[in-house]
Write a protein that binds this DNA or RNA. Structure first.
Length: 463
RNA sequence: GUGGUUGUAGCUCAGUUGGUUAGAGCGCUUGAUUGUGGUUCAAGAGGUCGCCGGUUCGAACCCGGUCUUCCACCCCA
């Protein structure tokens, strides 16, 4: 019985055109990663559960895909645990492995395991899929690619500056103009929690603050109150809600607010230094913006925090993010190794480029020349020409059968082939071929003996 | 994980208070056109109406379940 095939929720098939576009993004990112001196690594699709669990908070743990043990795993669970019927107690005993949830934690594991072979500072990049058991939405999938670049073993703020430049370089090369790199500093957020007397509520405070531009001032205050932050504390933090304008202006306000917080002032100084240096160097198409309401996942970030927003005309979640984490490898037993990194959301960048029609026209051009097939002798001559063309890096093919000319032309049209070569009996007798431009409809005769260089310029303009 | 939403031809969608052979546009195949595609004209193929069950003389339509889609939360790329 034939059943209708399907794929799991939140996963996708990619057609040739889609793969071509994705590869365009990936190769652009890769090229810049390498220009900035990052080296590629890869890690397994799945890790030991204990490597991943507890690293992303309770919410994160819930979203980790767990892999059922092989063999008779049920019999290995003790009776007490089994009869408790509590998934949370049973799951760890029957799922010893789990799919990777992001690339940062596996990277931390990698650094710790290979610390003796690595030359620090280590700049690595990694482009691989990750899996999350989330509910899919626009731009949210259960399987998606992350493109990460991280630097470990370097404390200098120049790393942050370089990463901002890297964002700018990638998005510029993708043709995506007008991205906004939002920057904040975890120390500033800590300082704020400190001066409003809600140090123990740091996470609740920042999560609420992060929603400011989405739900508005009133609702943010409401959420803060419901989390146990006093009215008085919110009043002290009030300037944050109205913080606008230039970075220097905002920093001045922050300084007044945080003057009694050592950690807060440290954060401000870091922000200043990064802003000033980036200002000196300049950015091509992106803008670096200070955003004190930016929070992101606070689980491991300790310094700078970045998030990239698509141009304002597009409604889309962040297309990249990152930050400084001083002690990521600490959880795996390696102390005092500072890391800082950024991530590109391939799938969302794809949606943005698609929506703005920014993919180059030739990006999914899988064939540049199609030679029509008129029979054995003619096909042989065509194959000789095709070899020459391929030698010059031109994607060329022979139509595999001597089908109706009309059908062959239709095929060329469907596949968006810009040029068709016609070698029929007549052309062959004159040792010639006809080159037809499918866009303009023009065609001209060329000699089969000519070096392709004589008509190659045709392709440069149109193919 | 919570609340809602969607599913009919390859695609985008119509479809009467439940009633006989379920429609359109686009696409596809063939022909007009035995050496010229995109435009045009004609003909044709293609659907157990997401799946399972229930109500009914009768279900694309009503009810329950399930899967899927999209959306708002949660969280996040």
């Amino acid at each position: 019985m034939a059943q209708k095939p399907s794929i799991p929720k939140g996963t996708r098939d990619f057609s040739p055109a889609e793969v071509a576009k994705r590869n365009f993004i990936i190769s652009t990112i890769k090229e810049q990663f390498e220009l900035f001196g990052f080296q590629p690594i890869e890690t397994p699709s799945f890790e030991n559960s204990e490597t991943l669990l507890g690293k992303y908070g309770d919410e994160g743990d819930r979203l980790i895909f767990k892999i059922l043990n092989s063999g008779d795993f049920i019999s290995k669970v003790d009776d007490v645990t089994y009869s408790s019927k509590k998934s949370s107690s049973i799951a760890p005993k029957i799922t010893e492995k789990a799919l990777r949830y992001d690339l940062t934690v596996p990277f931390a594991r990698y650094v710790v395991m290979h610390q003796n072979e690595i030359d620090f500072p280590f700049k690595r990049y990694q482009i691989q899929p990750v899996w999350r058991a989330d509910r899919p939405q626009k731009g949210r999938f259960r399987e998606f690619y992350q493109c990460d670049a991280d630097i470990v073993g370097a404390n200098s703020l120049l790393q942050e500056v370089e990463l901002v430049q890297l964002y700018d370089a990638v998005f510029t090369n993708l043709g995506l103009v007008g991205t906004v790199i939002k920057m904040n500093n975890r120390k500033v957020l800590s300082g704020l929690a400190e001066v409003i007397g809600a140090k123990h509520l740091l996470v609740d405070f920042t999560v609420a603050l992060d929603k400011l531009d989405k739900i508005g001032e009133d609702k943010v205050k409401q959420e803060m109150l419901s989390k146990g932050i006093s009215e008085n504390a919110i009043a002290i933090a009030a300037p944050l809600f109205a913080m606008k304008g230039s970075a220097t202006n905002q920093l001045k306000q922050l300084e007044t607010l945080l003057q009694d917080s050592q950690v807060g002032m440290a954060g401000i100084n870091e922000l200043k230094e990064i802003l000033i240096t980036v200002g000196e160097l300049g950015l091509k198409t992106a803008t670096l913006q200070l955003d004190v309401t930016l929070a992101r996942g606070l689980n491991y970030y300790t310094g700078a925090i970045f998030e990239v927003a698509a141009p304002s005309s597009i409604k889309m979640g962040s297309i990249g993010g990152g930050g400084r984490y001083d002690d990521l490898t600490g959880i795996f037993g390696l102390k005092d190794v500072s890391g800082v990194g950024i991530s590109f959301g391939l799938d969302r960048i794809y949606l943005v480029l698609e929506e703005l029609h920014l993919f180059p026209k030739t990006v999914d051009q899988s064939l540049q020349v199609l030679c029509l097939n008129f029979g054995e002798k003619e096909a042989l001559a065509a194959l000789k020409l095709i070899s020459k063309l391929r030698g010059h890096g031109i994607k060329a093919n022979l139509y595999p059968a001597a089908a109706k000319v009309q059908k062959q032309f239709k095929y060329a049209d469907k596949r968006n082939v810009p040029f068709v070569v016609i070698i029929g009996a007549e052309e062959l007798s004159r040792n010639e071929f006809i080159l037809k431009d499918m866009v303009s409809g023009e065609q001209k005769s060329c000699s089969l003996d000519d070096e392709p260089s004589s008509f190659l310029n045709e392709f440069n303009g149109n193919a």
